[in-house]
Write a protein that binds this DNA or RNA. Structure first.
Length: 489
RNA sequence: GUUCCCAUCGUCUAGAGGCCUAGGAUGCCACCCUUUCACGGUGGAGACACGGGUUCGACUCCCGUUGGGAAUGCCA
Protein backbone atom coordinates (compact mmCIF):
# COMPACT_ATOMS: atom_id res chain seq x y z
CA UNK A 1 0.00 0.00 0.00
CA UNK A 2 1.47 3.24 -1.14
CA UNK A 3 1.62 6.12 1.29
CA UNK A 4 -0.94 8.84 0.60
CA UNK A 5 0.62 11.81 -1.08
CA UNK A 6 0.50 15.05 0.86
CA UNK A 7 1.75 18.32 -0.59
CA UNK A 8 1.61 21.76 0.90
CA UNK A 9 1.81 25.41 0.07
CA UNK A 10 3.15 27.62 2.82
CA UNK A 11 2.73 31.31 2.06
CA UNK A 12 3.77 34.04 4.43
CA UNK A 13 1.02 36.63 4.52
CA UNK A 14 3.16 39.67 3.81
CA UNK A 15 1.51 40.80 0.57
CA UNK A 16 -0.50 39.65 -2.38
CA UNK A 17 -0.05 36.24 -3.95
CA UNK A 18 2.43 36.74 -6.77
CA UNK A 19 2.66 34.64 -9.89
CA UNK A 20 5.71 32.75 -8.66
CA UNK A 21 3.86 31.67 -5.55
CA UNK A 22 0.83 30.83 -7.66
CA UNK A 23 2.94 28.53 -9.80
CA UNK A 24 4.39 26.78 -6.75
CA UNK A 25 0.88 26.36 -5.39
CA UNK A 26 -0.31 25.09 -8.76
CA UNK A 27 2.37 22.40 -8.98
CA UNK A 28 1.77 21.31 -5.40
CA UNK A 29 -2.00 21.26 -5.75
CA UNK A 30 -1.93 19.59 -9.14
CA UNK A 31 0.44 16.90 -7.99
CA UNK A 32 -1.74 16.06 -5.00
CA UNK A 33 -4.90 16.05 -7.11
CA UNK A 34 -3.37 14.06 -9.92
CA UNK A 35 -2.17 11.40 -7.50
CA UNK A 36 -5.25 11.27 -5.31
CA UNK A 37 -3.48 12.96 -2.41
CA UNK A 38 -4.16 15.91 -0.13
CA UNK A 39 -3.12 19.51 -0.47
CA UNK A 40 -2.37 21.32 2.78
CA UNK A 41 -2.19 25.04 3.34
CA UNK A 42 0.02 26.34 6.12
CA UNK A 43 0.52 29.98 7.00
CA UNK A 44 4.07 31.00 7.83
CA UNK A 45 3.47 34.01 10.00
CA UNK A 46 6.36 33.88 12.44
CA UNK A 47 7.43 37.31 11.29
CA UNK A 48 4.78 39.14 13.25
CA UNK A 49 5.89 42.55 12.10
CA UNK A 50 5.16 41.85 8.45
CA UNK A 51 2.22 39.46 8.62
CA UNK A 52 -1.24 40.97 8.36
CA UNK A 53 -4.80 39.74 8.30
CA UNK A 54 -5.43 41.67 5.08
CA UNK A 55 -2.58 39.93 3.31
CA UNK A 56 -3.81 36.59 4.51
CA UNK A 57 -7.29 37.26 3.16
CA UNK A 58 -5.84 38.35 -0.17
CA UNK A 59 -3.71 35.26 -0.50
CA UNK A 60 -6.59 32.99 0.47
CA UNK A 61 -9.00 34.61 -1.96
CA UNK A 62 -6.49 34.43 -4.82
CA UNK A 63 -5.94 30.76 -4.11
CA UNK A 64 -9.68 30.19 -4.12
CA UNK A 65 -10.12 32.13 -7.33
CA UNK A 66 -7.56 29.91 -9.01
CA UNK A 67 -9.50 26.92 -7.72
CA UNK A 68 -6.83 25.45 -5.48
CA UNK A 69 -8.85 23.93 -2.67
CA UNK A 70 -7.03 22.70 0.40
CA UNK A 71 -8.05 19.69 2.45
CA UNK A 72 -6.34 20.96 5.58
CA UNK A 73 -5.45 24.46 6.61
CA UNK A 74 -7.02 27.79 7.57
CA UNK A 75 -10.85 27.82 7.54
CA UNK A 76 -11.10 24.06 7.15
CA UNK A 77 -8.88 22.79 9.98
CA UNK A 78 -7.52 19.26 10.01
CA UNK A 79 -5.77 16.69 12.16
CA UNK A 80 -2.31 18.21 11.97
CA UNK A 81 -3.27 21.70 13.08
CA UNK A 82 -2.93 24.41 14.03
CA UNK A 83 -2.04 25.60 10.53
CA UNK A 84 -0.69 28.97 11.56
CA UNK A 85 2.91 28.89 12.68
CA UNK A 86 2.20 31.64 15.15
CA UNK A 87 -0.03 29.15 16.99
CA UNK A 88 2.53 26.38 17.06
CA UNK A 89 5.11 27.91 19.38
CA UNK A 90 4.76 25.15 21.99
CA UNK A 91 5.56 22.56 19.39
CA UNK A 92 8.73 24.34 18.29
CA UNK A 93 9.77 24.92 21.90
CA UNK A 94 9.31 21.27 22.72
CA UNK A 95 11.37 20.25 19.70
CA UNK A 96 14.14 22.66 20.53
CA UNK A 97 14.24 21.33 24.09
CA UNK A 98 14.58 17.83 22.76
CA UNK A 99 17.62 18.79 20.71
CA UNK A 100 19.09 20.67 23.64
CA UNK A 101 18.65 17.66 25.90
CA UNK A 102 20.20 15.31 23.33
CA UNK A 103 23.18 17.60 22.93
CA UNK A 104 22.23 18.30 19.32
CA UNK A 105 21.73 21.97 20.01
CA UNK A 106 23.22 24.53 22.37
CA UNK A 107 22.62 28.00 23.74
CA UNK A 108 24.64 30.78 22.20
CA UNK A 109 25.32 34.07 23.95
CA UNK A 110 27.40 35.74 21.27
CA UNK A 111 26.43 39.29 20.47
CA UNK A 112 25.57 40.58 17.04
CA UNK A 113 28.73 42.67 17.02
CA UNK A 114 30.98 39.69 17.76
CA UNK A 115 29.30 37.65 15.09
CA UNK A 116 29.58 40.42 12.55
CA UNK A 117 33.28 40.95 13.24
CA UNK A 118 34.04 37.24 12.93
CA UNK A 119 32.13 37.04 9.70
CA UNK A 120 34.08 39.92 8.20
CA UNK A 121 37.33 38.35 9.27
CA UNK A 122 36.48 35.00 7.73
CA UNK A 123 35.49 36.71 4.49
CA UNK A 124 38.71 38.63 4.40
CA UNK A 125 40.63 35.37 4.79
CA UNK A 126 38.63 33.78 1.99
CA UNK A 127 36.90 31.27 4.25
CA UNK A 128 33.19 30.63 4.38
CA UNK A 129 31.73 33.03 6.90
CA UNK A 130 30.07 30.50 9.12
CA UNK A 131 29.51 30.45 12.85
CA UNK A 132 32.81 29.60 14.50
CA UNK A 133 31.45 27.51 17.36
CA UNK A 134 32.30 29.84 20.23
CA UNK A 135 29.47 28.66 22.49
CA UNK A 136 29.36 25.13 21.20
CA UNK A 137 31.06 23.57 24.18
CA UNK A 138 28.98 25.43 26.73
CA UNK A 139 27.13 22.84 28.80
CA UNK A 140 23.40 22.98 29.24
CA UNK A 141 23.83 23.57 32.99
CA UNK A 142 26.13 26.54 32.47
CA UNK A 143 23.79 27.96 29.86
CA UNK A 144 20.81 27.60 32.15
CA UNK A 145 22.70 29.42 34.86
CA UNK A 146 23.35 32.32 32.50
CA UNK A 147 19.72 32.31 31.47
CA UNK A 148 18.59 32.34 35.08
CA UNK A 149 20.87 35.31 35.61
CA UNK A 150 18.91 37.16 32.95
CA UNK A 151 21.17 36.76 29.94
CA UNK A 152 19.49 36.37 26.56
CA UNK A 153 20.58 33.41 24.48
CA UNK A 154 19.61 31.99 21.13
CA UNK A 155 19.51 28.28 20.44
CA UNK A 156 21.78 26.96 17.71
CA UNK A 157 21.68 23.60 16.02
CA UNK A 158 24.90 21.63 16.27
CA UNK A 159 25.76 20.78 12.69
CA UNK A 160 26.97 17.18 12.52
CA UNK A 161 30.33 16.32 11.01
CA UNK A 162 30.30 14.78 7.58
CA UNK A 163 32.49 14.79 4.50
CA UNK A 164 29.76 16.16 2.34
CA UNK A 165 26.00 16.24 2.21
CA UNK A 166 24.17 14.68 -0.71
CA UNK A 167 20.60 15.48 -1.64
CA UNK A 168 18.48 14.08 -4.45
CA UNK A 169 16.25 16.80 -5.77
CA UNK A 170 13.17 16.07 -7.82
CA UNK A 171 13.95 18.91 -10.20
CA UNK A 172 17.73 19.09 -10.07
CA UNK A 173 18.90 15.58 -9.45
CA UNK A 174 21.89 15.04 -7.21
CA UNK A 175 23.15 18.08 -5.34
CA UNK A 176 26.25 17.94 -3.14
CA UNK A 177 27.41 20.41 -0.53
CA UNK A 178 30.75 20.48 1.23
CA UNK A 179 30.37 20.00 4.97
CA UNK A 180 31.74 23.37 5.94
CA UNK A 181 29.11 25.21 3.97
CA UNK A 182 26.91 25.88 6.95
CA UNK A 183 27.82 26.61 10.49
CA UNK A 184 25.73 25.93 13.58
CA UNK A 185 22.62 27.86 12.72
CA UNK A 186 20.03 29.47 14.96
CA UNK A 187 16.77 27.62 15.45
CA UNK A 188 15.34 29.71 18.30
CA UNK A 189 15.97 33.43 18.54
CA UNK A 190 16.95 34.94 21.86
CA UNK A 191 13.38 36.21 22.17
CA UNK A 192 12.15 32.65 21.94
CA UNK A 193 10.72 32.89 18.43
CA UNK A 194 11.69 30.02 16.14
CA UNK A 195 13.21 30.75 12.72
CA UNK A 196 11.96 29.72 9.34
CA UNK A 197 14.15 26.71 8.65
CA UNK A 198 13.28 25.16 11.97
CA UNK A 199 9.53 25.72 11.74
CA UNK A 200 9.45 24.57 8.20
CA UNK A 201 11.22 21.28 8.85
CA UNK A 202 9.27 20.55 12.02
CA UNK A 203 5.93 21.38 10.41
CA UNK A 204 6.51 19.47 7.21
CA UNK A 205 7.52 16.45 9.25
CA UNK A 206 4.62 16.68 11.70
CA UNK A 207 2.13 17.31 8.92
CA UNK A 208 3.40 14.21 7.12
CA UNK A 209 4.20 16.11 3.96
CA UNK A 210 5.54 13.70 1.36
CA UNK A 211 6.50 16.13 -1.40
CA UNK A 212 7.77 19.67 -1.01
CA UNK A 213 7.76 21.92 -4.07
CA UNK A 214 9.24 25.34 -3.54
CA UNK A 215 11.33 27.98 -5.25
CA UNK A 216 15.00 27.53 -6.00
CA UNK A 217 16.15 30.11 -3.51
CA UNK A 218 15.39 27.55 -0.81
CA UNK A 219 17.79 25.00 -2.22
CA UNK A 220 20.54 25.89 0.24
CA UNK A 221 18.07 25.90 3.12
CA UNK A 222 17.25 22.33 2.31
CA UNK A 223 20.59 21.21 3.64
CA UNK A 224 19.75 22.67 7.04
CA UNK A 225 16.32 21.18 6.99
CA UNK A 226 17.59 17.74 6.07
CA UNK A 227 19.95 17.85 9.05
CA UNK A 228 17.01 18.68 11.29
CA UNK A 229 14.95 15.79 9.94
CA UNK A 230 17.85 13.49 10.67
CA UNK A 231 18.35 14.86 14.15
CA UNK A 232 14.71 14.09 14.96
CA UNK A 233 14.76 10.88 13.01
CA UNK A 234 11.79 11.95 10.94
CA UNK A 235 11.31 10.47 7.47
CA UNK A 236 12.48 12.78 4.72
CA UNK A 237 10.00 14.07 2.13
CA UNK A 238 10.97 14.48 -1.51
CA UNK A 239 12.04 18.00 -2.36
CA UNK A 240 11.64 19.71 -5.71
CA UNK A 241 13.25 23.12 -6.18
CA UNK A 242 11.55 25.04 -8.94
CA UNK A 243 13.43 27.50 -11.09
CA UNK A 244 12.96 31.20 -10.55
CA UNK A 245 10.60 33.32 -12.67
CA UNK A 246 12.33 36.31 -14.24
CA UNK A 247 11.13 39.60 -15.71
CA UNK A 248 11.87 40.78 -19.25
CA UNK A 249 15.27 42.07 -18.17
CA UNK A 250 16.14 38.61 -16.82
CA UNK A 251 16.15 39.85 -13.28
CA UNK A 252 13.98 38.15 -10.72
CA UNK A 253 10.36 39.16 -11.32
CA UNK A 254 9.42 42.03 -9.04
CA UNK A 255 7.07 44.95 -8.80
CA UNK A 256 9.08 47.11 -11.12
CA UNK A 257 8.27 44.72 -13.95
CA UNK A 258 4.62 45.74 -13.80
CA UNK A 259 1.90 43.32 -12.88
CA UNK A 260 3.23 40.43 -10.79
CA UNK A 261 0.31 39.49 -8.61
CA UNK A 262 -2.47 37.10 -9.41
CA UNK A 263 -4.97 39.74 -8.43
CA UNK A 264 -3.65 42.26 -10.92
CA UNK A 265 -4.07 39.82 -13.77
CA UNK A 266 -7.51 38.94 -12.55
CA UNK A 267 -8.47 42.61 -12.52
CA UNK A 268 -7.16 43.08 -16.02
CA UNK A 269 -9.60 40.49 -17.28
CA UNK A 270 -7.34 37.48 -17.51
CA UNK A 271 -9.12 34.22 -16.84
CA UNK A 272 -7.89 31.71 -14.32
CA UNK A 273 -7.85 29.07 -17.04
CA UNK A 274 -5.30 31.07 -19.01
CA UNK A 275 -3.21 32.04 -16.01
CA UNK A 276 -3.01 28.46 -14.78
CA UNK A 277 -2.25 27.16 -18.24
CA UNK A 278 0.50 29.71 -18.73
CA UNK A 279 2.06 29.15 -15.32
CA UNK A 280 1.92 25.39 -15.76
CA UNK A 281 4.05 25.59 -18.88
CA UNK A 282 6.51 28.02 -17.38
CA UNK A 283 8.88 25.43 -16.00
CA UNK A 284 7.12 22.22 -16.92
CA UNK A 285 6.25 20.68 -20.26
CA UNK A 286 3.46 18.39 -21.30
CA UNK A 287 4.53 14.89 -22.37
CA UNK A 288 2.19 15.22 -25.34
CA UNK A 289 3.67 18.65 -26.09
CA UNK A 290 0.25 20.23 -25.65
CA UNK A 291 0.05 23.96 -25.34
CA UNK A 292 -3.55 24.89 -24.63
CA UNK A 293 -4.69 22.60 -21.87
CA UNK A 294 -7.89 22.04 -19.93
CA UNK A 295 -7.72 21.09 -16.27
CA UNK A 296 -8.74 17.50 -17.03
CA UNK A 297 -5.72 17.07 -19.27
CA UNK A 298 -3.41 18.70 -16.74
CA UNK A 299 -4.63 16.28 -14.09
CA UNK A 300 -4.05 13.40 -16.42
CA UNK A 301 -0.56 14.37 -17.53
CA UNK A 302 1.05 16.14 -14.60
CA UNK A 303 3.91 14.40 -12.87
CA UNK A 304 7.19 15.20 -11.14
CA UNK A 305 9.36 14.55 -14.14
CA UNK A 306 9.53 17.12 -16.93
CA UNK A 307 10.30 20.06 -14.68
CA UNK A 308 12.70 22.51 -16.28
CA UNK A 309 15.59 23.47 -14.09
CA UNK A 310 16.58 26.74 -15.74
CA UNK A 311 14.96 30.07 -14.93
CA UNK A 312 12.11 31.29 -17.14
CA UNK A 313 11.13 34.77 -18.28
CA UNK A 314 7.51 35.72 -17.75
CA UNK A 315 6.13 36.75 -21.14
CA UNK A 316 2.91 38.70 -20.99
CA UNK A 317 2.42 38.55 -24.75
CA UNK A 318 2.08 34.81 -24.60
CA UNK A 319 -0.24 35.02 -21.61
CA UNK A 320 -2.47 37.32 -23.65
CA UNK A 321 -2.57 34.89 -26.49
CA UNK A 322 -3.48 32.09 -24.13
CA UNK A 323 -6.18 34.18 -22.58
CA UNK A 324 -7.73 34.93 -25.96
CA UNK A 325 -7.55 31.30 -26.95
CA UNK A 326 -9.24 30.12 -23.77
CA UNK A 327 -11.88 32.83 -24.06
CA UNK A 328 -12.80 31.70 -27.54
CA UNK A 329 -13.32 28.19 -26.26
CA UNK A 330 -15.64 29.26 -23.43
CA UNK A 331 -19.30 28.28 -23.43
CA UNK A 332 -21.93 31.00 -23.69
CA UNK A 333 -22.91 30.61 -20.03
CA UNK A 334 -19.34 30.92 -18.85
CA UNK A 335 -18.73 34.01 -20.95
CA UNK A 336 -21.91 35.69 -19.78
CA UNK A 337 -20.94 35.10 -16.18
CA UNK A 338 -17.63 36.76 -16.90
CA UNK A 339 -19.17 39.68 -18.73
CA UNK A 340 -21.75 40.41 -16.06
CA UNK A 341 -19.04 40.41 -13.48
CA UNK A 342 -17.02 42.94 -15.43
CA UNK A 343 -20.06 45.09 -16.06
CA UNK A 344 -21.11 45.04 -12.43
CA UNK A 345 -17.63 45.96 -11.33
CA UNK A 346 -17.76 48.96 -13.64
CA UNK A 347 -20.99 50.17 -12.14
CA UNK A 348 -23.24 48.96 -14.89
CA UNK A 349 -26.53 47.55 -13.75
CA UNK A 350 -27.15 43.96 -14.79
CA UNK A 351 -30.34 43.55 -12.77
CA UNK A 352 -33.65 42.26 -14.12
CA UNK A 353 -34.90 45.43 -15.79
CA UNK A 354 -31.53 46.25 -17.24
CA UNK A 355 -31.05 46.23 -20.96
CA UNK A 356 -28.16 43.87 -20.54
CA UNK A 357 -30.39 41.26 -19.03
CA UNK A 358 -32.32 41.05 -22.29
CA UNK A 359 -31.17 37.85 -24.02
CA UNK A 360 -30.53 39.84 -27.15
CA UNK A 361 -28.07 42.10 -25.34
CA UNK A 362 -26.56 39.19 -23.53
CA UNK A 363 -25.69 37.78 -26.87
CA UNK A 364 -24.21 41.08 -27.98
CA UNK A 365 -22.19 41.37 -24.83
CA UNK A 366 -20.73 37.96 -25.36
CA UNK A 367 -19.71 38.76 -28.87
CA UNK A 368 -18.17 41.94 -27.68
CA UNK A 369 -16.29 40.29 -24.87
CA UNK A 370 -14.96 37.81 -27.31
CA UNK A 371 -13.62 40.62 -29.39
CA UNK A 372 -12.37 43.05 -26.86
CA UNK A 373 -13.51 43.64 -23.37
CA UNK A 374 -12.29 47.20 -23.16
CA UNK A 375 -14.42 48.24 -26.09
CA UNK A 376 -17.47 46.78 -24.47
CA UNK A 377 -16.91 49.17 -21.63
CA UNK A 378 -16.21 52.05 -23.96
CA UNK A 379 -19.65 51.70 -25.39
CA UNK A 380 -21.25 52.48 -22.07
CA UNK A 381 -18.66 54.37 -20.08
CA UNK A 382 -17.16 57.78 -20.76
CA UNK A 383 -15.35 58.29 -23.96
CA UNK A 384 -11.75 58.13 -22.93
CA UNK A 385 -9.34 57.92 -25.79
CA UNK A 386 -10.17 61.14 -27.48
CA UNK A 387 -6.81 62.76 -27.75
CA UNK A 388 -5.27 59.66 -29.23
CA UNK A 389 -8.32 59.26 -31.43
CA UNK A 390 -7.73 62.29 -33.57
CA UNK A 391 -4.21 61.11 -34.16
CA UNK A 392 -5.45 57.73 -35.26
CA UNK A 393 -7.77 59.26 -37.83
CA UNK A 394 -4.80 60.42 -39.76
CA UNK A 395 -2.80 57.28 -39.10
CA UNK A 396 -5.54 55.00 -40.32
CA UNK A 397 -5.24 56.11 -43.90
CA UNK A 398 -1.80 57.58 -43.71
CA UNK A 399 -0.83 57.00 -47.28
CA UNK A 400 -3.86 58.05 -49.19
CA UNK A 401 -5.86 60.00 -46.68
CA UNK A 402 -5.51 63.58 -45.58
CA UNK A 403 -6.66 65.15 -42.37
CA UNK A 404 -9.15 67.16 -44.32
CA UNK A 405 -10.65 64.13 -45.94
CA UNK A 406 -10.97 62.30 -42.62
CA UNK A 407 -12.63 65.31 -41.18
CA UNK A 408 -15.03 65.45 -44.11
CA UNK A 409 -16.01 61.83 -43.52
CA UNK A 410 -16.68 62.47 -39.86
CA UNK A 411 -18.63 65.64 -40.60
CA UNK A 412 -20.73 63.91 -43.21
CA UNK A 413 -21.35 61.06 -40.83
CA UNK A 414 -22.41 63.44 -38.13
CA UNK A 415 -24.75 65.36 -40.40
CA UNK A 416 -26.47 62.20 -41.55
CA UNK A 417 -26.87 60.89 -38.03
CA UNK A 418 -28.34 64.22 -37.03
CA UNK A 419 -31.09 63.81 -39.64
CA UNK A 420 -32.46 60.75 -37.90
CA UNK A 421 -35.03 61.11 -35.18
CA UNK A 422 -34.93 57.75 -33.39
CA UNK A 423 -33.20 57.48 -30.03
CA UNK A 424 -31.14 54.53 -31.26
CA UNK A 425 -30.15 53.78 -34.82
CA UNK A 426 -30.97 50.40 -36.29
CA UNK A 427 -28.39 48.31 -38.03
CA UNK A 428 -30.13 49.09 -41.33
CA UNK A 429 -30.02 52.81 -40.72
CA UNK A 430 -26.35 52.60 -39.84
CA UNK A 431 -25.53 50.73 -43.02
CA UNK A 432 -27.55 53.18 -45.09
CA UNK A 433 -25.73 56.14 -43.56
CA UNK A 434 -22.42 54.50 -44.18
CA UNK A 435 -23.26 54.10 -47.87
CA UNK A 436 -24.29 57.71 -48.12
CA UNK A 437 -21.05 58.88 -46.56
CA UNK A 438 -19.16 56.75 -49.04
CA UNK A 439 -20.96 58.40 -51.93
CA UNK A 440 -20.70 61.97 -50.65
CA UNK A 441 -17.09 61.92 -49.50
CA UNK A 442 -15.99 59.64 -52.29
CA UNK A 443 -13.89 57.36 -50.16
CA UNK A 444 -14.13 53.68 -49.45
CA UNK A 445 -12.53 50.87 -47.50
CA UNK A 446 -10.43 51.81 -44.52
CA UNK A 447 -10.46 55.46 -45.48
CA UNK A 448 -14.18 55.47 -45.03
CA UNK A 449 -14.42 53.04 -42.23
CA UNK A 450 -11.69 54.22 -39.86
CA UNK A 451 -12.82 57.80 -39.44
CA UNK A 452 -16.35 56.61 -38.72
CA UNK A 453 -15.03 54.06 -36.27
CA UNK A 454 -13.03 56.64 -34.45
CA UNK A 455 -16.05 58.93 -34.40
CA UNK A 456 -18.05 56.16 -32.74
CA UNK A 457 -15.70 54.41 -30.32
CA UNK A 458 -12.76 56.72 -30.15
CA UNK A 459 -10.17 54.10 -30.98
CA UNK A 460 -9.27 52.38 -34.21
CA UNK A 461 -10.05 48.95 -32.78
CA UNK A 462 -13.03 47.23 -31.26
CA UNK A 463 -16.14 45.26 -31.98
CA UNK A 464 -17.99 45.38 -35.27
CA UNK A 465 -19.62 48.79 -35.67
CA UNK A 466 -22.87 47.12 -36.61
CA UNK A 467 -22.97 45.75 -33.09
CA UNK A 468 -21.85 48.90 -31.39
CA UNK A 469 -23.77 51.69 -33.07
CA UNK A 470 -27.23 50.41 -32.09
CA UNK A 471 -26.13 50.36 -28.45
CA UNK A 472 -25.28 54.01 -28.33
CA UNK A 473 -27.96 56.74 -28.09
CA UNK A 474 -28.10 59.01 -31.13
CA UNK A 475 -27.27 62.18 -29.23
CA UNK A 476 -24.25 60.41 -27.76
CA UNK A 477 -23.10 59.58 -31.28
CA UNK A 478 -23.45 63.21 -32.28
CA UNK A 479 -21.60 64.36 -29.22
CA UNK A 480 -18.72 62.01 -29.90
CA UNK A 481 -18.45 62.95 -33.54
CA UNK A 482 -18.39 66.59 -32.53
CA UNK A 483 -15.59 65.95 -30.06
CA UNK A 484 -13.51 64.23 -32.69
CA UNK A 485 -14.04 67.13 -35.11
CA UNK A 486 -13.10 69.59 -32.41
CA UNK A 487 -9.97 67.67 -31.45
CA UNK A 488 -8.78 67.48 -35.04
CA UNK A 489 -9.17 71.21 -35.48
C1' G B 1 35.33 36.11 -1.27
C1' U B 2 33.23 31.04 -0.54
C1' U B 3 29.50 27.37 -1.79
C1' C B 4 25.45 25.85 -4.73
C1' C B 5 22.20 26.20 -9.09
C1' C B 6 21.53 27.39 -14.31
C1' A B 7 22.85 27.96 -19.90
C1' U B 8 18.66 25.48 -27.35
C1' C B 9 15.35 30.98 -31.84
C1' G B 10 13.67 37.83 -28.65
C1' U B 11 10.42 34.65 -25.17
C1' C B 12 8.28 29.61 -23.43
C1' U B 13 10.09 25.05 -24.82
C1' A B 14 10.95 19.70 -27.54
C1' G B 15 15.44 17.06 -27.55
C1' A B 16 17.71 10.82 -22.72
C1' G B 17 24.80 10.01 -28.53
C1' G B 18 23.21 8.93 -34.75
C1' C B 19 15.79 10.22 -35.85
C1' C B 20 18.69 17.41 -36.10
C1' U B 21 19.71 20.59 -42.61
C1' A B 22 17.58 21.19 -34.38
C1' G B 23 10.81 20.45 -34.00
C1' G B 24 6.50 23.27 -31.82
C1' A B 25 4.32 27.70 -29.62
C1' U B 26 4.46 32.88 -28.93
C1' G B 27 6.31 37.42 -30.69
C1' C B 28 8.13 39.85 -35.24
C1' C B 29 8.00 40.62 -40.85
C1' A B 30 5.53 39.82 -45.76
C1' C B 31 1.39 38.40 -48.62
C1' C B 32 -3.83 36.76 -48.65
C1' C B 33 -8.79 37.03 -46.26
C1' U B 34 -11.65 40.78 -43.71
C1' U B 35 -15.13 47.69 -44.14
C1' U B 36 -11.70 47.13 -37.01
C1' C B 37 -9.96 42.77 -34.07
C1' A B 38 -6.89 39.53 -28.48
C1' C B 39 -10.40 36.14 -35.93
C1' G B 40 -8.52 32.90 -40.19
C1' G B 41 -4.76 31.27 -44.16
C1' U B 42 0.20 31.01 -46.56
C1' G B 43 5.21 32.06 -46.33
C1' G B 44 9.78 34.26 -44.00
C1' A B 45 13.74 35.77 -40.72
C1' G B 46 15.24 33.66 -35.99
C1' A B 47 18.91 29.29 -31.39
C1' C B 48 22.35 24.60 -29.49
C1' A B 49 27.22 30.79 -24.99
C1' C B 50 32.69 29.60 -25.77
C1' G B 51 36.99 26.21 -25.56
C1' G B 52 38.82 21.52 -24.74
C1' G B 53 38.13 16.34 -24.21
C1' U B 54 35.35 11.14 -24.54
C1' U B 55 33.33 8.74 -29.04
C1' C B 56 33.27 6.07 -35.54
C1' G B 57 29.66 10.08 -34.30
C1' A B 58 27.84 15.13 -29.68
C1' C B 59 22.62 19.98 -28.65
C1' U B 60 22.87 15.53 -25.84
C1' C B 61 28.38 12.69 -21.61
C1' C B 62 33.04 14.88 -18.83
C1' C B 63 36.29 19.15 -17.68
C1' G B 64 37.26 24.26 -17.97
C1' U B 65 35.97 29.46 -19.36
C1' U B 66 32.38 33.13 -19.70
C1' G B 67 27.73 34.89 -18.42
C1' G B 68 23.29 34.85 -15.27
C1' G B 69 21.01 33.55 -10.54
C1' A B 70 20.82 31.97 -5.37
C1' A B 71 22.80 31.16 -0.50
C1' U B 72 26.23 32.71 3.04
C1' G B 73 20.43 36.34 8.66
C1' C B 74 18.54 35.91 15.74
C1' C B 75 13.96 37.41 7.07
C1' A B 76 10.65 34.02 5.04
Amino acid sequence: MQQKIRTRFAPSPTGYLHVGGARTALYSWLFAKAKGGDFILRVEDTDQARSTKESLDMVLSDLKWLGFDWQEGPEVGGECGPYFQSERKEIYKEHADRLLKDGKAFYCFCTDEDLEAKKEKAKAEGKSPVYDGTCRSLSLEEAEKKLAAGEKGAVRFKVPQAEEFVHHDVVRGEVRWPQDMVGDFVILRSNGMPVYNFCCAVDDALMNITHVFRAEEHLNNTLRQIMLYEAFNYPLPKFGHLSIILGEDKKKLSKRHGATSVNEYKEQGFTKEALINYLLLLGWSSPSESEIMEMSQMLEEFDMDRFKSSAAVFDEAKLKWMNATHLRAFSTEKLWALVSEVLTKNGINVSAESTWQDPKWQEKALELYKVRMETLLDAVTPFKYLSEASFEVAEAGAETMTWEKSLEVVSTWKALVAEKSEEFLSVEQFEEIQKQVQAKAEVKGKNLFMPIRVAVVGVPQGADLKDLVPLIPRDKLLERAEKVIASVK
